[in-house]
Design a protein around this nucleic acid. Structure first.
Lengths: 156, 156
DNA sequence: CAGTATCCCAAGCGATACTG
DNA sequence: CAGTATCGCTTGGGATACTG
């Protein structure tokens, strides 16, 4: 297929970007995936204003990637905490890919501030594109094939 | 490490997001990686204004992920085209991860408009997180370990 | 075709103050 | 602590017109 035939708006990348494209959302996801769950902790760590954090969290809850939970420590009153849903956790490859790319191209002379490691064995973790038959499938070895859904849409 | 110890700004994810977080950049990268290289073709396919496209391209050239080339068809005058640099091409995993996620969670009843396939064998392509010793390393089986660079920064 | 210049509007964002 | 309300600034972005 010629890529230009591929509808720019219905593209899954476009839909994903629509949810994630602002300056804070991916960093917010990063913190959530790494164990920061409370409003004030998120605000302080990200350095974002309360207002924006509130809006972002609401948007992510609406999008189904974050859920709000109440919890209660002993002797304390109930508090709210935010956790990723299954859909949210599955954005991990996006974050890892961004991390790997930033490590490689933006880290500067000092090197990356942190590396991702497999807890089981301590080896470095990387992102790979593979096909169902196990072939490495990066770069030009990959193409998009339009589905029935796209064909039907095109006819309408 | 406790994630909150990890500096939010020097994080490689943050640096990457800084370059990519606007509404158009990732879609622009998508089109560039898929063979749309000319200004007017990009503008038409993305549906973005000339002004913004011009700025985005300039920013991406400055960031080193896009390069501007001149080419000349027979009998035509020279024209400009934009191509990804090596660094730009290596953002492919980010795009594939976004595509896969959108396919899974945002495609709706009709299913995704296109699927990614390995040109060699036609099998579907997916993103995997693996460690250097070949272990599958997704979800909670992964952690960030601060490097010397982070320790030095923390002391300063 | 490949942009730049101008204008104006809307959205994003931060600061501050306030509420339960 | 966990937010909402209000304000005003700044940036992003579309429309249109213009240039090489």
């Amino acid at each position: 297929m010629r890529w230009a035939d591929y509808d720019s708006e219905t593209c899954s990348i476009a839909r994903s970007v629509d949810i994630l494209h602002d300056r804070w959302t991916l960093l917010l996801m990063r913190d959530l995936i790494n164990g920061v769950h409370r409003f004030e902790a998120l605000r302080a760590h990200l350095g974002v204003s309360r207002d924006v954090l509130s809006k972002r969290l609401a948007a992510l809850v609406a999008a189904g990637v974050v859920e709000r939970r109440s919890y209660q420590d002993d002797g304390e009153r109930a508090r709210a905490a935010y956790h990723l849903t299954e859909a949210g956790r599955e954005l991990q490859p996006v974050l890892v890919a961004l991390l790997a790319w930033g490590d490689k191209y933006l880290a500067g002379a000092a090197g990356p501030p942190a590396v991702l490691e497999h807890i089981g064995c301590g080896a470095a973790v990387s992102v790979r594109l593979v096909c169902d038959r196990g072939h490495e499938a990066a770069g030009a070895h990959v193409r998009l094939r339009p589905t029935e859904a796209a064909r039907l849409r095109g006819e309408s």
